[in-house]
Design a protein around this nucleic acid. Sequence first.
DNA 1: CTATTGAGTAGTCAAATGCAACTCAGCCTG
DNA 2: CAGGCTGAGTTGCATTTGACTACTCAATAG
Lengths: 155, 155
Amino acid sequence: MNWADLDSGHCSIARAADIVGDRWTLLILRDVSRGIRRFDELSAHLGIARNILSARLGALVANGVLERMPYAEEGRRPHQEYVMTPRGAELLPVLLALIAWGDRHLSEEPPVRAVHNGCGHEVRLVPTCTAGHALTGGGEVQIVPGPGARRVDRE
Amino acid sequence: MNWADLDSGHCSIARAADIVGDRWTLLILRDVSRGIRRFDELSAHLGIARNILSARLGALVANGVLERMPYAEEGRRPHQEYVMTPRGAELLPVLLALIAWGDRHLSEEPPVRAVHNGCGHEVRLVPTCTAGHALTGGGEVQIVPGPGARRVDRE
DNA sequence: CTATTGAGTAGTCAAATGCAACTCAGCCTG
DNA sequence: CAGGCTGAGTTGCATTTGACTACTCAATAG
C-alpha cells in the first residue's frame, strides 16, 4: 500500500485540521469547554483581536462545533453565549491528547489536569481496540486506509 | 475556580498548539508517521510550497518532534529522511483523536482507520481514569488546573 | 439623557503563504 | 569530463491572512 497514492486532502485528519487546525481555534474550544463563553471574556482572556475572534467563532458555528445562543440572566441585559454542540463536545479527546502531550513534553509540572468527575482520578486516553486490548506500548497501532479512501487525481 | 484568572498562554494546550496547531504541521506528521519521509515526497503529496515545508520541517526538528537523518540505500545516492522522534511518536493520540472526530462528523465513510497491529481490530481512544474506570459517556471528564497553573499577570 | 457594556465591523499595516525560479551537490551517462 | 538529472533546499516577489486600533450600534443602567 502506497500512501502517497491517496488524496491528501480527502482524509479525516485534513478535514478535521481544516476546522480545528488553528492556534486560536483550539484555544477558543479550550476556553469554551471550561465555561468562558462570552465574546468579551474570550477576547480578554485569549488576547485575540476582536475581528479574528469574530471570524473564528463564526466558522466554528458554521461548522456545527459551537452554537450561538442568546442568554439572559435576570436583572442583566441579554447577551450571546457560545456553547459546545454535541459535535463540538466530541472534540474533547483532541484537547485531552494535546494536554497529555504538552504536559509530558513541554512543562515540568502540568498546568492542567483532566480528572474523572466521579472519582477524581486523573484521566488518560488509552488506545483500545474493539477486541478489548489496551495498547500501552508504542508501535502497536497502524493507520490503514478505510473504505472512504480516495486515490489522488492525476491524469 | 475562575479559569479566566489563569494565564492562557501558560497552558499545555497553548504550548502544544504552538507546535502542532497548524494545518500543514498536522498533515506533515500524518504523512511522516505513514512513511512519507522525504522532502520531495512530502512536497508532492501535500501540495505544500517548498519554502513552507522547509520552514515547518525545520521547526519540527527544532522542537524535537522530528529528526533529520541522512539515509543511503546502497547503489543510490544518499538523501535526507525525516523520522519521528519518541516525542513525536507520542503525538499519535492527537492524530487518532482527529481521525476519530473527522470520521464521525465529516465523512460518510472513514477514509482512514486505526487498527491494532496484533489482532487487526479497530483502535479507539478511550478516556480512562487511573482508577481504571473507562469513561464512555460525555460530561464525565473535567479539566482542572494542575500544579503548574499560573495566574495571569496583571498589575 | 448620558455612560457603559456587549458584540461586532472598518481601516490599516505587518507577517505568513504561495509560486516560480534559482542554487548546489552528488551521481550517471555518453 | 560536459551535460543531465535528482534531491534538497533557498531567494525574490505578489498575494493572502493576521493582528492592532479605532469606530459603530444597540440595550440597559443610573
